[in-house]
Design a protein around this nucleic acid. Sequence first.
RNA 1: GCCGGUGUAGCUCAGCUGGCCAGAGCAGCUGAUUUGUAAUCAGCGGGUCAGGGGUUCGAAUCCCUUCACCGGCUCCA
Length: 638
Amino acid sequence: MDKISITLPNGKKRSVHRGTPVNQTVKEIFPDIYPLIIAAVLDNEIVDLSTSIEKDTTLNVLTSKEEGGLKIFWHSASHIMAQAVKSLYPETILGIGPAISNGFYYDFFLNDSITETNLLQIEKRMKEIIKEDIPFVKRILPKDEAFQLFEEKGERFKLELIQDIPGDTITIYENGDFFDLCRGPHVPSTGYIKYFQLLSVAGAYWRGDERNAVMQRIYGVAYTEEKALKEDIQAREEAQKRDHRRLGKELDLFSFHPEGPGFPFWHPNGVILYNEINQYMREVLQRKNYFEIKTPLILNEALWHQSGHWDNYKSNMYFTDIDDQSYAVKPMNCPGGLLIYKNSAHSYREFPLKYSEMGMVHRHEKSGVLHGLFRVRQFTQDDAHVFCTPDQVEEEIIKIIDLIDEIYHTFKFENFLIELSTRPNKSIGTAKMWNMAEKALTNALEYKKLTYQINKGEGAFYGPKIDYHIQDSIGRMWQCGTIQVDFSMPDRFDLEYVGPDGDKHRPVMIHRAILGSVERFIGILIEHFGGAFPVWLAPVQCVVLPISEKVHDYAHQVLNHIQKSQIRSVLDIRNEKIGYKIREAEIKKVPYMCIIGEKEKNNKNISVRKRSEGSTGQTALSSLITEIRDQIKRRMHY
RNA sequence: GCCGGUGUAGCUCAGCUGGCCAGAGCAGCUGAUUUGUAAUCAGCGGGUCAGGGGUUCGAAUCCCUUCACCGGCUCCA
């Protein structure tokens, strides 16, 4: 028998017989971690451990510690779940069951409805399957044979999938009497899935299309170690504790009411956040030479025909009549802004001309997608439109990138993911314009040495764009900022400027939003900070806590000083023990507590306690005020 | 919009296999206590059981319906 050569991760070579199963080799090379190994990597291709090695190759292995390994692990868990469901509900027709970023799911079509209580039974059946330690066996079948196999089982969704798969062969994976269409790879046997938990059930359309059948989706997660599963469940609970809907209630920031589904009601504490953010944005934009504008909420329908929203966005718009004329509530700010631009003649000397608008827009979202502040029907965009010459585009994009960077850092977002979306199939504008704009965006990103991902063909029909995703303190990504070049609006509104040659030219228009929706951004901030806002944003920045009634007079004086220093502060003169008042201030996440007893009164000073840090001892009132003022002024992260 | 679930006091929840006046904790109010760094004690008030309709001698509980909210609705075998 002939020998072949295997190159190991450390560069060493080893020769084995052709056709040796990879698991045998892996067992010899990685004896200590062998039980944790889920799959092998031959020449950068992830394969089952049962695969035979047929040619010279490099060899590496994957455990559930690596993302790739974990995905395989989850995918195998989803097969086991499908097997369990199929055995409990034999009439089940299978959909798809992939691993996703934080676990796995499987879609089932069945007449019985699965509820959360059924999950326990399914888990129990899964445990039995895992205990039996059934091997996952890969089989490669001719397409027609596979088709027949699934047809006999009545697996109509699988038939659809098979038809869409290119090539002549199909792979399936069997474990015991269960088999499933699957590209693989898988863990060697069901016994590998040691610790798992089913999380939730939900409805989902087949292939995500509402015209298709409704499937029942079960979500779950699995790990090789109990500790990892526990940590995952704990992280999910932690995320729930930070849920902005819950904190919004607890901190009395906002509410929703049946009288206006999707329309947030801002309470006094929430308005403070809202106003502080707006004020900060105004300060920055003024420094960057933006001019703030404000345009009406309701504008004549004709404008929306001209802008193209009537054709492309009508189903998301609200309409009303005024004096027998049809009007629309604005879903976007640009058309109004363009009327201001067109109100006067413009010269290249004014460029770049930057109009910013904290514009309140209304968009009709389907009732089922509303979600706290994250998905609402009324929100405020931190919108801006930059009018410039084609030569200025790149430089303007760079300036916007710098601006975005500055603003995100102020809110303690340190990691971003940037996407560049290029020309889609259906688009307007000439190839020359698109090339110019895409090049300007690319050059700007390259100039700033930013890493970005290209989404080919994902741009808007009217121009290419850059999207920003920000990472919050518990690792989740949120799409917020966007920079879009627009070829459509300047044409539709016949925008002009007079160039140095004295002729009229068409300006380039750049849309950009940094926070995106202020409402949604506040929701993200609430979860990012877990309600413990930096001092400059905190609705109450300092609470004065007198220990007994004997010092109320002094406490009032202290409060007075603090308030005069423009620090948002309150006095808690309730007839309660100091521990009680402190506890409440901690729960309300007030950053500074100013504690006053007879000692402080006699010493003419105060005691300071910082949120979640504890007592920092007695100090002069003036030094506390200076510290807080400094935090506010510099908008420190605390 | 669709699928599934939930809706009881300001908040968190119990009661829900139909039948004593619908309960608890927290919050609120009143009083006592005058307090030293995450909950002092006692008393009091508070609910059209989401809205509407039905079944029944009798409905928070069963059925229908409307509304709102929650989990989701391709991260592609």
